[in-house]
């Protein structure tokens, strides 16, 4: 990951490659999924938790547009809510990893000295722990709750933002144009706003997409092994596990949450790829 980041930080990246086909497809896919996640719960009137045991495992196209699960809950409603939950949590996790990561990275490169060494040491410590392990440690305090899951993921993900922001800023700070701007009388806020941020932003966009993909997969994985969010929360990972015993009767019901996770992560990866592949 770090190598990839440094490679695309080259000075002469042509502007034309900022929106290649893969990024446009990725963003389009994300827009569709976001519309489903945001509008779905509003348009579909069904409560994702309302059970109708007479409609257990109803097929697609009956009373329920996408069928129902073993408790007769509308799969369309559950999928829309699940997508919103995954999307929202991933976005929140990414933001609370990206903002401190970016600020601390720029700060470390700018101040140097003890502050930089302390922050680098801290990030190395976090990096040495497997991300999921960190989340599991925090989840042990309050299993099934949203807060430790979110905190753990953010704590694991900020390191990448920090490292990219720090190395990019450090590389920029030694360039003549920063020295020239200082000599011409421009202050630190101007240099950060007009010279450092525009250079880091495209890298952060790529990283942000990767981080959201990681968060979505982590949330689903942890919920699937019953340490993340607990039923009856309509979470995509736990939906797969809940429906797995009924695979023989309703294979599509099992596959749909998985397909949704796949599309979400695919959209994010394609968006991220746009920045790395020339």
């Amino acid at each position: 990951m770090m190598l990839q980041m440094q490679g695309l930080a080259g000075p002469d990246r042509p502007a034309a490659t900022a929106w290649p086909l893969s990024r446009r497809i990725g963003l389009g896919l994300l827009a569709l999924l976001a519309a489903f996640a945001l509008l779905g719960p509003l348009l579909v009137d069904a409560d994702p938790a309302r059970q109708d045991l007479s409609a257990s495992l109803a097929p697609i196209g009956s009373d329920f547009l996408l069928g129902a699960d073993h408790y007769g809950r509308s799969l369309l409603a559950r999928l829309a809510h699940g997508a919103r939950l995954s999307f929202g949590m991933a976005l929140l996790t990414m933001l609370s990893a990206a903002v401190p990561g970016l600020l601390l990275g720029v700060l470390a490169a700018w101040r140097g000295g003890v502050a930089e060494r302390a922050l680098v040491a801290l990030s190395d410590i976090v990096l040495a722990l497997p991300g999921l392990l960190l989340v599991l440690i925090l989840l042990a305090f309050a299993p099934g709750h949203f807060l430790p899951l979110y905190l753990g993921l953010s704590l694991a993900l900020w390191v990448e933002f920090f490292r990219v922001a720090r190395t990019t800023t450090a590389r920029l700070l030694v360039e003549p144009r920063i020295e020239a701007a200082r000599l011409l009388g421009f202050g630190t806020p101007y240099i950060l706003r007009h010279q450092v941020l525009p250079e880091i932003a495209p890298l952060l966009l790529t990283l942000a997409a990767f981080a959201m993909g990681t968060a979505i997969l982590a949330i689903s994985t942890l919920s699937a092994i019953s340490v993340g969010l607990q039923p009856p929360t309509p979470e995509l990972g736990s939906m797969i596990v809940e429906l797995l015993p009924y695979y023989a009767e309703a294979p599509l019901a099992v596959l749909m949450p998985g397909l949704l996770i796949f599309l979400l992560v695919l959209g994010l990866q394609l968006t991220a790829r746009g920045g790395t592949v020339r």
């Binding site: 000075p11 144009r177 000599l183």
Partner: peptide, 26 residues
């Protein structure tokens, strides 16, 4: 600010994404 420097490699002393007009306006 009345003590100034000219650089050996001219492109290195300019912000690549800023137009010359923006640089002068700032």
């Amino acid at each position: 600010v009345r003590f100034q420097k000219l650089y050996q490699d001219p492109p290195a002393a300019f912000v690549p994404h800023q137009t010359m007009g923006q640089a002068l306006d700032h």
